[in-house]
Design a protein around this nucleic acid. Structure first.
Lengths: 118, 118
DNA sequence: ACACTATTTCGATGATCGGTGAAATGTCCA
DNA sequence: TGGACATTTCACCGATCATCGAAATAGTGT
């Protein structure tokens, strides 16, 4: 994680819709959610959501894969951890006292569909 | 930490000069650094630095105290930790597996002056 | 009170950002 | 192949942001 990536990631997170979006995906785990469902949950236009998702994908905080017609987006925990580590680097002048780590295991309650949604 | 505060904090961090500034202060510990030294280290105009410092103070990520003529700025580790916790809340759908914490102890090598600087 | 230093405030300017709707792209199914 | 669905791309607009220099404020020592 260098400065450019960190700024891209922080800039992606520093917006109302996107922060809610990221926290939603973080909650959902690696299974993620399709774009349509996300737009519905957050109450934003599809074109608007697409714009915000791009920011995250470009920042590496989110990945997407295709499942039939839908695009499933999910959080990139590795990048998230790298960002947190970057922020707390050399914290307080001491060694490595602040090293948050998240290793996703369980999925979202109503996570990505296999064949149908809604 | 609610959404508004988180966005203010993330927005403060999502900028080249400010990110460098925050990481500098995080490294320095609770003793902090005077504004003049920070401006010199980062190579920005005093008026520009003042603008950036305001953002952080408003976001609660930085505090300042006066030492004679100088204003000493230092990182607010509590807010930083709250922000990291907010980002990883309910991570992966599991309980509390991602709870970074930093408790400052040691100071900066050439930290805030008691009476004189430069 | 005065000169000096440290820092902030102010107003102006160019750049970037977020929202919107229409149109384009890609995918599936009959 | 054609029609329906899911999502993205595009161009436009108003709003916000970062930088700058000049001027103002606050504190110190004589």
């Amino acid at each position: 994680m260098d400065q450019k990536h960190a700024i891209a990631a922080l800039g992606a997170l520093a917006q109302e819709t996107r922060l809610a979006l990221f926290r939603l995906l973080v909650t959902c785990g690696p299974e993620g959610l399709p774009a349509g469902i996300i737009a519905e949950r957050l109450g934003v236009l599809p074109s608007s959501l697409s714009f915000h998702l791009q920011q995250f994908v470009h920042a590496g905080l989110i990945t997407h894969r295709r499942s039939s017609r839908q695009l499933i987006y999910s959080a990139e925990y590795g990048t998230m951890n790298a960002l947190l580590a970057y922020l707390t680097e050399n914290c307080c002048g001491r060694g490595a006292a602040c090293a948050p780590v998240c290793d996703p295991a369980a999925g979202c309650s109503d996570a990505a569909p296999k064949t149908t949604v809604a």
